[in-house]
């Protein structure tokens, strides 16, 4: 099979070579030089350029339409709305520029196609044009940068909310551990030298504030409508905590603590009823059915978004967003099971 493919490729190359030779020979018969291109050829090429543009643009719009439902659902966090706004503004801007510049590219190739009767015109300079193509992109770029910076500063401003929920995300090759402060609402100190099998996140055992901390794996819960402050640590290499549905991402760098704050606006249950999400999941489950796999339900995810080794692709954790009351219940359960386990 592979041999056949290879053979086909070689034959194609040989055929192409022969074709070129035939063209060269026929040119010899016609007594024209390689660089003497007839107006008929120029016309053909010019029109082909236009046709290429039409097909290219049609393909572009078809692609956009075809894959539109594979993009992320609307933001499920407060600041995420701003990120989406910025994203949309940029995409519309880029698409507009893409269409305009490519139109001119092909249109000029057609309009100024070779013509044996036309005479070249000499233009040394055009102030108006130069001003236009300098000032317009400058304004557009300034817009992009100013709004980007403004939103970035707003999103990264230190949290000053009183009842924020603190969650520590501890990354290592290749899983996540979430740590909640206990009743004292303060995370215990850590010390990398105390990392061992029964103390995987390196809690400082001499710090009493850490005694009531709650560790969870595979899935962690957060309440809706409350500010969540994530603190990120890493044991080994750089990881990146990526919560795509909340438009949140921050690197986890060994040796330091990084922060990200956000406020979820939709619970997992609400999200599962969102029309966009229903459509998206229907598409995914249709594909899974074809592969004889069980259907899945929508879940918020925490993913690792920085290459960190062989199983990087599988370094993830489910996130459940629920009402504050449900969250407190869940946290109390976890705290209780912890005391049971340690007794």
């Amino acid at each position: 099979m592979n041999l056949l493919v290879l053979l086909a490729i070689i034959l194609l190359i040989v055929a192409g070579h022969q074709l070129l030779k035939v063209i060269e020979l026929s040119r010899g018969l016609k007594k024209t030089k390689e660089w003497q291109i007839s107006d008929a050829d120029n016309n053909l090429m010019g029109k082909a350029m236009l046709w290429f543009m039409v097909v290219f643009f049609a393909f572009f719009f078809w692609q956009v339409n075809r894959w539109m439902d594979r993009s992320l659902p609307p933001a499920a966090s407060e600041h995420g709305v701003k990120v989406d706004l910025l994203w949309d503004a940029n995409i519309y801007l880029i698409t507009f520029v893409f269409l305009v510049t490519n139109f001119f590219l092909f249109w000029f190739a057609y309009k100024y196609r070779g013509n044996s009767k036309a005479k070249a015109e000499f233009i040394a300079h055009n102030n108006k044009l130069e001003l236009l193509w300098t000032v317009v992109p400058a304004i557009a770029l300034a817009f992009v940068i100013i709004f980007g910076l403004k939103y970035w500063n707003e999103i990264m401003a230190p949290s000053n909310e009183e009842n924020k929920i603190i969650v520590e995300l501890y990354a290592k090759q290749f899983d996540w551990t979430a740590r909640y402060p206990g009743k004292d609402n303060v995370l215990g100190e850590t010390d990398y030298r105390q990392i061992n099998g029964s103390n995987p996140v390196g809690m400082d055992t001499s710090d009493v504030k850490g005694k009531d901390d709650i560790l969870v794996r595979n899935e962690f819960h957060i309440p809706v409508g409350t500010e969540i402050e994530l603190r990120m640590r890493s044991r080994d290499v750089i990881h990146s905590a990526y919560l795509p549905h909340f438009r949140a991402q921050m690197n986890c760098v060994p040796g330091m603590i990084t922060y990200f704050k956000f406020k979820p606006t939709k619970t997992t249950a609400e999200m599962r009823k969102d029309p966009y999400v229903i459509k998206m999941m229907a598409g995914i489950n249709a594909q899974r059915a074809k592969e004889n796999k069980e259907p899945v339900e929508f879940d918020y995810l925490l993913l690792c978004n920085k290459i960190c080794g062989a199983s990087h692709y599988n370094m993830q954790m489910n996130v459940i967003v629920e009402s504050l009351a449900d969250f407190k219940l869940w946290r109390a359960q976890k705290a209780a099971s912890k005391t049971v386990a340690s007794n």
Binding site: Q173, D236, V237, I238, P254, I307, G309
Partner: peptide
């Protein structure tokens, strides 16, 4: 990025 690239045992 180091340390992934700095430590031969990382991957």
């Amino acid at each position: 990025y180091p340390p992934l690239s700095a430590l031969p045992e990382a991957m």
